[in-house]
Write a protein that binds this DNA or RNA. Structure first.
Lengths: 133, 133
DNA sequence: TATTGACCTTCCAGTTGGTGGAAGCTTTAT
DNA sequence: ATAAAGCTTCCACCAACTGGAAGGTCAATA
C-alpha cells in the first residue's frame, strides 16, 4: 500500500502519516523506488492513532496506548489508568471553559451592543479584580 | 517601572511581557541603561491583556480588543460582536470535549481494569466505526 | 572598595501537532 | 510523448509562549 491508500483508509492526511513516521509512531517499509510501503498492520495502527487522537489523547498518550495495544499480555488496568487520567484532563478543561463561558456570557449580556462607546466588557477587562462578577 | 515590577502588578511572567513587546502589543520606553521602562498605561494594558487571555481570547482577539479599548469613540456593538464570536468558539469547544468525555467515560466504564489483558478500550480504538458506542 | 546576588538584556532553541509549499522523482493514463 | 497524479525530501511556519546561555547593571553587604 502506498501512502495515499493508507491515508484514505485511515482518514489521516498523508502529511500527518509522514509526520507520524518521523516521530516513530509507525514504521512502514520502503519499496525499491523509495516509496513507503504500508502493511495491513500499519494501516490498523494509523486508524487506531486517528481514533485515539480524535478522543483527544496527546501523541505521547497515543504512543503509550499503542505500546499497550501491541503487548497482548498487558493488564487492562494500565490502559484504564491512562484513559482515566485523560478523562480527568478533559473534565478539567471542560470546567475551565465553562467558567470562562459564564464570565463572558455575563459580560456580553451586560453590553448594549449599540453605537455608543460605553461597554461593560472593556470596562471589566480593564479593571476586574480576582473575583469580580 | 522595570519589567519585574510590572510583571508582579499584571501577574504576567516577564518573558511573556517581552514577547508581547516583540509582537507589538505593548511598547514600553527604554532607560539609558537599556532597561524597559513601563508607564502606568503599559501596566494597565498588560493587566487588560492578562484578563482577556484568561478568558481565552487569542492574541489577535486581544489586539482587536485593545484597539477598541483605546478608541474611546468605538461602538460597543463591535466589542460585543468579538465577544459573541468568542463565546461561540467556547461553546463549540465545550461540546466537542463533552462528546469526547462521554465516549471515553463509556469505554473506561466497560473496562475491568484488572491484570487480565482483554481491554474494551483498546478493542474499541482498534476497530471503532464512525458511530460505534 | 570589592564582590555577591538579584535583576536586566539579547538571542537561540524547543514545545505540540501538525500544515504549506518548493523542487524534483516515478508512475499511470491518454 | 507528454501530461497529470502521486511520491520523495526539506525547509519554513502556525500559537503562545518557555527555558537557558552569555553577558551587562544595580543595590547591598563585608
Amino acid at each position: 500500500m502506498n501512502i495515499g491508500d493508507v491515508a484514505k483508509l485511515s482518514g489521516l492526511p498523508a502529511k500527518t502519516i509522514r509526520y507520524y513516521e518521523d516521530i516513530g509512531l509507525v514504521r512502514p517499509l520502503r519499496g525499491s523506488n523509495g516509496y513507503r510501503t504500508f502493511r495491513e498492520s500499519d494501516a490498523h495502527k494509523l486508524a487506531f492513532l486517528g481514533r485515539a487522537r480524535a478522543l483527544g489523547f496527546s501523541i505521547e498518550g497515543c504512543r503509550s496506548l499503542l505500546k499497550l495495544y501491541e503487548d497482548t499480555d498487558r493488564a487492562s488496568a494500565e490502559v484504564k489508568r491512562i484513559a482515566e487520567e485523560h478523562l480527568e484532563r478533559i473534565d478539567q478543561k471542560i470546567s475551565e471553559l465553562t467558567e470562562m463561558r459564564a464570565t463572558l456570557a455575563h459580560l456580553v449580556d451586560a453590553c448594549n451592543g449599540d453605537h455608543r462607546p460605553d461597554c461593560p466588557i472593556l470596562t471589566d477587562l480593564a479593571t476586574a479584580q480576582q473575583e469580580d462578577i
